[in-house]
Design a protein around this nucleic acid. Structure first.
Length: 264
DNA sequence: AGCCAGGAAGTCC
DNA sequence: GGACTTCATGGC
């Protein structure tokens, strides 16, 4: 077991922040968290977080996954007291971080997320893992690979309730199976945010908002600022004269998460 | 019954 | 370039 303290890591906040759909809640402040073909049980009481794994695994997997080497306190301190909306949002969501999730898992999850709600996205992702993933410990299933998804048809995806997104998923999986996903990821890592966004938007079913989610959550491009219905509402309500993006250059996506969580 | 949900694509003009 | 419509589905 590994125990540490952090003022800026709150499991409950992250679990309900809409960036990840595969955590399983075990109880208050307790989650079973899958990543990289493993799972870890995480327990939080106040600022103390315990991960039930060996120190070696913590260093090789979970330190990176939880983005523990990024200083979120510095992001929070950029918020001026003169901004009542973000001040409230930051107080509410000060334990949110941008997880370093798997690129493909993020692509698929947010492809499904369009015109959808978080509860149903979570169920759909669980169903996908169940019918196409590999069984892990504790009854969870790994997130299916591009090849595993490409072996299924759009009808299979419709059968688990993906609706019109089933065609998008079948097409995306066919396009990126056979090594295409790794190629795309490697290529995107060499490009600017704008070029990467443009490349992602060339894929059927991925528009501006989903592309920005993939940039932020799947490639850790912290400048990406996905604008969905919640963010539009917040910006329209609290920032009718424009949002001060320049102030948050380099981490606007983190700020976006505070606003999103605030609106939920 | 109608509206909303972490939207995108097609079709108008 | 915008405005409008359609696309499944479930919850309220």
């Amino acid at each position: 077991m590994v125990t540490f303290e952090s003022q800026h890591l709150n499991l409950n906040q992250i679990a309900s922040s809409g960036q990840c759909f595969t955590w399983r809640r075990l109880g208050e402040g307790r989650y079973l968290i899958p990543a990289q073909g493993r799972t870890v049980e995480a327990v939080q009481a106040g600022d103390r977080i315990s991960l039930l794994c060996a120190p070696k695994e913590f260093e090789s997997v979970w330190r990176d996954y939880f983005d523990l080497d990024t200083d979120y306190g510095a992001f929070l301190s950029a918020i001026p007291a003169s901004d009542p909306c973000l001040t409230a949002a930051a107080r509410l969501g000060q334990g949110i971080r941008i997880l370093r999730q798997d690129f493909w898992e993020v692509m698929v999850s947010f492809l499904i997320s369009q015109n959808n709600n978080i509860a149903r996205i979570t169920r759909s992702v669980a169903e996908l893992c169940r019918i196409c993933g590999a069984p892990l410990e504790n009854g969870l299933f790994s997130f299916p690979t591009p090849d595993a998804l490409a072996a299924r048809s759009a009808e299979d995806f419709r059968a688990i309730g993906l609706g019109y997104r089933a065609e998008y998923l079948a097409n995306l999986s066919a396009t990126l199976s056979g090594g295409g996903e790794a190629e795309l990821r490697a290529a995107l890592e060499q490009t600017s945010d704008e070029e990467a966004r443009c490349a992602l938007m060339s894929l059927r079913g991925i528009g501006r908002k989903v592309a920005d989610c993939i940039l932020l959550f799947g490639l850790h491009r912290l400048d990406a600022f996905p604008t969905d219905t919640h963010i539009k509402r917040v910006l329209c309500t609290y920032y009718p004269d424009g949002f001060p993006f320049a102030r948050y250059r380099g981490f606007a996506g983190v700020i976006q998460q505070y606003l999103f969580y605030f609106d939920l």
